[in-house]
């Protein structure tokens, strides 16, 4: 760390997101402007003497002697986590690492990798990893009238209520790796602002041509399905299990493979309405 500390840092600032203290420094005076679009959606810039993680961004200049471009570098504390000739790659890495770190160590919230929408005062939570089709299903639910909460994290409090994590949806076209950011307003939807109790947990994986044949799973099974996608599961299982257990206590939980998201979206909304 000492070696990195000796570099010439011209821009330094700190922020708090979900109670997590982050420091960022850069060798460029416009460091904050560079980084701002990549900060977590919920944060406040504050002066902090101590941080939980310090990011250091070295923006490459031209090597005067060889005229070759140097590498842009990103450190998380003393560890190099990105090096690239493209600054955008380094900034995107900062964004994803920062988001993951906040999700892991957030003090009063439990982050579950899941899609979430709100419908008539209840949340539909769809836990799942990348490529499970969460964003597609969330976008169809929003098109069908549901309120957008997140396509990445279901953020639970200790009482089991779900908060919005309203970043733009990240959609992949079939077979592609690269995601495109889509604002929820482009889908004709709106973003939720209040925490909601969970009404429906949908444990589902997209499979081309699959038939939707949901079966009820117990609350315990639903907690396991959520825990399997919980960022802080290993760090603080006590907190995670407590919040998730409360979250599913009043919910119905279903499991099935699914095909076309448009049809399922309508069925889910109808199901939640029937359960009210």
């Amino acid at each position: 760390m000492e070696k990195i500390d000796r570099l010439d840092w011209t821009a330094k600032f700190s922020l708090k997101s979900y109670g997590v203290r982050i420091g960022i420094r850069s060798n460029q005076p416009n460091g904050l402007e560079l980084v701002r679009p990549h900060l977590p959606h919920q944060h406040e810039l504050v002066d902090l003497p101590v941080v939980d993680r310090l990011y250091s961004i070295v923006v490459a200049g031209k090597n005067v002697r060889s005229n070759a471009r140097r590498l842009n570098l990103l450190y998380a504390d003393e560890e190099t986590i990105a090096r690239s000739r493209k600054l955008d790659d380094v900034l995107e890495r900062l964004e994803s690492d920062l988001r993951l770190f906040v999700a892991e160590v957030a003090r009063h919230r439990v982050f579950v990798h899941a899609g979430v929408v709100g419908w008539k005062g209840k949340a539909i939570v769809i836990p799942g990893r990348s490529y499970s089709g969460k964003s597609t299903l969330v976008s169809e639910l929003v098109r069908a009238g549901a309120t957008y909460y997140s396509d990445e994290y279901a953020v639970f409090d200790a009482r089991g209520r779900v908060y919005p994590f309203p970043k733009p949806l990240e959609m992949r076209s079939e077979g592609a790796f690269k995601q495109t950011k889509v604002e929820v307003t482009r889908l004709g939807g709106r973003t939720g602002s209040k925490p909601l109790p969970v009404g429906l947990v949908v444990v589902s994986q997209y499979k081309s041509g699959a038939r939707w044949r949901p079966r009820e799973i117990s609350n315990g099974q639903a907690v396991l399905a959520l825990l399997a996608n919980t960022v802080s599961a290993r760090r603080d299982p006590d907190k995670a299990l407590g919040a998730l257990q409360k979250g599913v206590a009043t919910a119905r939980s279903l499991k099935s493979v699914r095909g076309d998201a448009e049809v399922i979206a309508q069925l889910l909304l109808a199901m939640l309405e029937k359960n009210r």
């Binding site: 994803s96 988001r99 993951l100 999700a103 892991e104 579950v112 990798h113 990893r129 990348s130 990445e152 990240e170 790796f177 315990g220 099974q221 396991l224 825990l227 399997a228 996608n229 919980t230 960022v231 802080s232 599961a233 290993r234 760090r235 299982p237």
Partner: peptide, 16 residues
């Protein structure tokens, strides 16, 4: 008894 292995933070996140 149904069991799962708890994910590491990276396994539970949106990355490959």
């Amino acid at each position: 008894v149904t069991s799962i292995v708890a994910p590491t933070p990276a396994q539970a996140a949106t990355c490959l």
